[in-house]
Design a protein around this nucleic acid. Structure first.
Lengths: 246, 246
DNA sequence: CGGCTCCTTGACTTGACTCAAATACGGTGG
DNA sequence: CCACCGTATTTGAGTCAAGTCAAGGAGCCG
């Protein structure tokens, strides 16, 4: 985040998410056109980006940081329905409001496009529409995978699944010997609970249990090291990648 | 189903899902091209249409009947991750295999397109790609709504949510006075359980409870009548449409 | 040194699961 | 038309995983 100071103008060509975001397939002339309708916005951890049902006058990409999509019932029960990491897309072209609350769970930088011009451009440049279709299909797959987690896994498996996903998307190699992955949790215990359909007490207990059983190593509350990734995958219940067949 | 006999050739112009399926926006010349690469297939209730990870050489639309997408863990736990009703799309352009098992839960008619020609056509006709994007975004919204059901609702609310969804998508008006909706369940108790992340016993108990409390009227195991839809919505926990505002 | 917020842990409760049986229904063959 | 079988469903009794309620602890900042 610190590398992208507030209101810094970044050339699309130098953008860190250039090859993964909705603009991934654009040619340089298309990028120029995008540059003319884009602007950056910064959000602090905890800040709401859009409220559910509010009118959105932009769409955009997460450049740095993590955001969450959540749904809330009248009595306050809430469920996170999406976790947006850098390069993920926010907003739905062709619809006025947001269907969910969008909240920054860490400090965040968004690359925003004014909505009308973006929609016009999408209609005219298949590269953008195709990439957005591809990304939406990927998100649909991720949502469905998550339905299995929510519907059928135990609390312990749910926690392990979440940790495995974060470890996979943040593939910093282990620092010390005997540590295969190591990362900072971008979520509070409560946010984890909202993602997993659990209470925060249950999250805390299962984190402690995984630590006690040596599946993870906790340094402070948020830093997680994983000595053996395939062990973690086993705990998650999807041992399809248990190590065989490379 | 009976109106579409096996192997009957149907002109796209006369197709019952013409205006809702992936072909909805096509012009008549595009429809002709689609007609040249399409064929119909019939499936019986319970039959598997594609196995997870199997190669799919077609994509297509459900014309009549209901199909389910399911994921299964090694130990047999299964979760339904999608319910495909007429006009819904099956398969993912640009990917070899299916990510899920696709099963017919009632007798079913599919309009299939050979995959390669369909992909080629998609690249050339924005009408199809745009419609598919729109449908995929709708499915993503539906999947996320379902995540709230799976993660945060009680068994009783889950059942009520499922019944409300089916009642909404099958808007046959009530036959008798004092009945606002009435429909045939396209799922067994076990399939309902797999959709809702419950056991079939719990589904059965909650169906009995809703019947006892007068929320629904059961005739036989599968036919459901709803005397008061807003009551059912209340039971589902999303009383946003409680009846006010229109 | 309070006063936060976030997290952990303990004790008890409960909603949904498991195991087990009984019942309904549709179809088949006599 | 009826006896019989297999599948789908209902119902009961007991258990357990996760929830609720209630204290504490840890780190951080003014």
């Amino acid at each position: 985040m610190n590398t992208l100071a507030k209101n810094t103008l970044v050339k699309c060509g130098e953008c860190p998410i250039r090859h993964r975001a909705v603009c991934a397939r654009c040619e340089s002339d298309e990028l120029e056109r995008l540059e003319s309708i884009k602007y950056y916005r910064n959000f602090e951890a905890g800040q709401t980006i859009v409220w559910s049902n509010d009118k959105m006058d932009f769409v955009g990409s997460v450049v740095a940081g993590v955001a969450a999509l959540t749904q809330t019932m009248e009595d306050g029960r809430t469920q996170m329905v999406g976790l947006l990491l850098p390069s993920d897309f926010v907003g739905r072209p062709g619809r006025e409001g947001s269907a969910y609350d969008v909240t920054a769970t860490t400090d965040l930088v968004m690359c925003c496009f004014r909505k009308k011009p973006f929609e016009k451009m999408m209609a005219e440049t298949p590269h953008i529409a195709h990439r957005l279709l591809e990304m939406t299909l990927d998100e649909l797959d991720a949502a469905r995978e998550w339905m299995l987690v929510l519907g059928r896994k135990t609390a312990r498996e749910k926690i392990a699944s979440l940790l495995a996903i974060i470890a996979r998307r943040d593939p910093r190699p282990g620092l010390s010997p005997g540590v295969e992955a190591s990362f900072e949790l971008p979520l509070t215990r409560e946010a984890m609970a909202d993602y997993l359909g659990l209470t925060l007490e249950t999250v805390s207990r299962q984190m402690s249990a995984l630590k006690r059983d040596g599946v993870i190593i906790l340094e402070g509350k948020r830093h997680v090291s994983v000595p053996d990734i395939s062990r973690l995958m086993d705990e998650a219940g999807d041992d399809s990648d248990g190590g065989y067949l490379v």
